[in-house]
Design a binder for these strands. Structure first.
Length: 746
DNA sequence: GTAGGGTTAG
């Protein structure tokens, strides 16, 4: 009788689900009576298996005895079981037991169950369990919303938030922090504002957790002013409020503002914890302030936070971003190297700071150590390949992606398109574009920019129309791609029209757009018009705008306007060698040798030297760099023989070297150097002797193509019957049959 | 049962 009574206490839900009367259940109880209770749960038939297999820790006799003696406390029992769970099979076993003992509608246990399932990454399972629960109340909704939000499944989190309101469950102060996080994760400020209104409607506006969520939402979405207003109204500002504000500024490219807020925080005697230091480090690294970054590093050690993994990763990132990649590598080596984000920091640090080759090496190293890369790792490795510029390396990367889980990752595909375009093959970029299933504005822009880089403006414009018919709205970068494409192809009319259509798409033209237009007008000889345009611009002209005007003045030998542009450049960007060289080139083209000398003095005064030119060529997957007059290569003799032969052929074909380039080069103190061994020519000669006939030569230069080499390369492509692809500091040139894809317009 | 942090495409 005692047994019956105890069981009855646990059984009521089953009596609804089961068509048999209670006595008949007992008649049917075999040697394993509990098994029978599994069946009422139609969605969880698999639980029979878990029930019949040995349960996790349940001692059935102990359990029965506990029931008999009325001391069984299911809530604490299952809380502790769930806390010990580390695998889905544990969840299955607990779940089976809950059904077996009729605890499947115990809100407390199910809330815990959902929470644990989510933290084990079994969110779909958690959702199914949630769906089985009759009329879930706010705790269960919160647990599920939290699960989605903490796994960056923001859309699902917001869907659940909407659904809970449809069934008239009121959100509470535990709901909003997660919903607000989801809004900021989606950058959905407008929706966030609606949620903000709901906060007031439910009278939760003075809850500090909710307030911090709001500060974080507005700050992370770039609405710093709004964040500040809420922040200043807070009655109680804790370290989380400060961190929300600081990280918001840091993430929105406002490092100095972030640091100012941090200063305020220190003034109000709030003690920093290690989490806030992560954002402070980010701010210092974005501001490029290595010295202050180092100070934070020493504070970290003083405060005893040096073993916090995430903080160490932030420190590594700081050194890497500030160009101290070798210091970063030391920190990297000190850690056990299992964390993917740590690898990402190091790979992108190498890739962006002139060690692209090392970045690729590190990625391969990671593969051999069986550490699973994520999408960011792959994107960083692809970026590294783009910087290396080796097409063979690029193909390897593409092959890797094609056979990996990242094949349909939109960001990875965008990076691949960019990589192929930068490695000289817009055709392969197009292949990636064609196979991409998902295409957003960034992916479309990548291929448009790619065509622009290669001077194929028609393709770029066609794709622009295709993009619009696919229902994708262009953005500011799309237009930069289109305008540079027009520049590189000399499509003045199209460029002009495109520029004037920017505002039709609700896009405010930025410096770069104006610079493109100045470039376009300037190159086509409309110098006065370009100057007029600069005068009438609604924004203050920047370095790139005056730079565009100066280089146009050089082409058309407009000295007075060029001098004016150069003056503006020298005041805005005094230490950039490029501007001085441009002005010197302008004087040289106008045969004003006095001017050339004047610039040289100016450069000496500032301690500036001309950047040395070099060219790289890829042969059999290996990159080789040549400097002007380089004789360091083991096959140097052969290279110079080939060079002489090329020169002879050029002369026979009637090639006349451009005297101006010669003069100004000599004037730039490269006295012993004649035209024929510009680094570009050396690379071509090496390519010719080390590859089979007909192979395309791929060359990368650090400077812009010089007039003389450009016309020589055109002719060489015809004489030796090779396609030669040259990437200069600005764009690609495809030389074939005596012509260049740029149409001599660069 | 709650909130803040590290890597990141054009």
């Amino acid at each position: 009788m005692a047994l019956n009574q105890s069981l009855f206490r646990l059984l009521p839900p089953l009596s609804f689900l089961f068509p048999y009367s209670i006595p008949s259940i007992f008649q049917r109880l075999g040697p394993n009576p509990l098994k029978l209770f599994i069946f009422p749960a139609p969605k969880f038939k698999f639980l029979t298996y878990y029930y019949s297999s040995l349960p996790l820790t349940l001692d059935r006799n102990l359990y029965n005895n506990n029931i008999l003696h009325n001391v069984f406390e299911p809530e604490s029992h299952y809380t502790s079981l769930l806390e010990k769970s580390t695998h889905k099979t544990h969840l299955n076993q607990v779940h089976a037991q809950l059904y077996a003992f009729g605890l499947q509608n115990n809100g407390f246990i199910i809330t815990k169950f959902i929470h644990v399932s989510c933290s084990l990454g079994e969110i779909n399972y958690a959702h199914k369990v949630f769906d089985e629960f009759p009329n879930p109340y706010v705790f269960l909704w919160n647990a599920l919303i939290r699960g989605y939000s903490s796994h960056n499944m923001f859309i699902e989190a917001i869907e659940m938030y909407n659904k809970m309101q449809e069934v008239y469950v009121s959100p509470d102060c535990f709901t909003f922090p997660h919903v607000l996080k989801a809004c900021s994760g989606l950058s959905a400020v407008e929706f966030g504002k609606a949620v903000h209104a709901q906060v007031f409607r439910h009278g939760l506006e003075s809850d500090v957790f909710v307030q911090n969520g709001l500060v974080s939402l507005y700050a992370r979405c770039g609405k710093i002013e709004m964040a500040r207003i809420i922040f200043h109204q807070l009655d109680e500002r804790n370290i989380v409020s400060w961190t929300s504000m600081i990280s918001g500024c840091a993430q929105n490219a406002l490092p100095s503002e972030a640091l100012r807020v941090f200063g305020e925080m220190r003034q109000s005697n709030v003690k920093p914890d290690w989490i806030v230091l992560v954002s402070v480090l980010r701010a210092y690294s974005d501001a490029g302030d290595l010295e202050q970054g180092k100070c934070v590093h020493s504070s970290v050690i003083k405060m005893g936070f040096e073993f916090e993994l995430d903080l160490r990763i932030a420190l590594t990132a700081m050194y890497a971003k500030c160009g101290q990649v070798m210091v970063a590598k030391i920190l990297f080596n000190e850690m056990d190297g299992q964390d993917v984000i740590l690898w990402n920091v190091m790979i992108s640090g190498f890739a962006k700071n002139g060690h692209a080759g090392k970045a690729v090496e590190l990625f391969k190293n990671m593969m051999t150590r069986n550490i699973r890369p994520d999408s960011v790792t792959v994107q960083s490795a692809i970026l590294a390949c783009a910087h290396v510029g080796s097409l063979e390396q690029a193909r390897w990367m593409d092959d890797y992606v094609y056979h990996s889980e990242f094949r349909d990752d939109i960001c990875v595909n965008t990076a691949l398109i960019d990589m192929f375009a930068k490695c000289g093959s817009v055709e392969l970029a197009r292949k990636v574009f064609d196979r991409a299933i998902d295409r957003d504005v960034v992916l479309w822009s990548a291929i448009i920019v790619g065509y622009g880089l290669h001077g194929q403006a028609r393709e770029a414009i066609d794709l622009f129309y295709a993009m619009k018919s696919a229902g994708v709205q262009p953005n500011d970068v799309t237009f930069i791609g289109l305008l540079t494409a027009c520049n590189h192809s000399g499509l003045v009319k199209e460029g002009w029209e495109l520029f004037h259509s920017i505002r039709d798409y609700d896009i405010e033209p930025r410096h770069q757009h104006y610079a493109c237009l100045v470039d376009l007008l300037g190159r086509s000889g409309h110098l006065e018009k370009a100057y007029d345009f600069i005068q009438k611009m609604p924004i203050e002209p920047s370095v790139s705008i005056w730079g565009a005007l100066l280089s146009a003045c050089k082409i058309f030998r407009h000295v007075t306007l060029g001098e004016y542009a150069a003056e503006r450049l020298f005041s805005l960007d005094p230490m950039n060698t490029g501007h001085y060289v441009q002005l010197s080139n302008l004087y040289a083209s106008a045969r004003m040798w006095g001017g050339v000398a004047k610039v040289r003095v100016l450069m000496k005064e500032k301690g500036l030297t001309k950047d040395l030119g070099y060219s790289m060529i890829e042969v059999n997957g290996k990159l080789l760099a040549f400097r002007m007059g380089d004789k360091s290569h083991p096959r140097s003799e052969e290279i110079y023989q080939e060079l002489e032969m090329l020169d002879r052929k050029l002369l026979e074909a009637g090639f006349v070297p451009d005297a101006e380039s010669a003069l100004h080069d000599l004037d730039m103190e490269d006295k012993e150097v004649s035209l024929c061994n510009h680094s570009e020519r050396l690379a071509i000669a090496y390519g010719l002797i080390s590859t089979p006939a007909g192979t395309t030569l791929r060359i990368t230069k650090n400077l812009r193509a010089c007039v003389n080499c450009h016309s020589a390369t055109k002719l060489i492509s015809k004489l030796v019957n090779r396609e030669i692809v040259v990437r200069d500091a600005n764009r690609f040139h495809h030389f074939k049959d005596g012509f260049c894809s740029c149409g001599d317009f660069w």
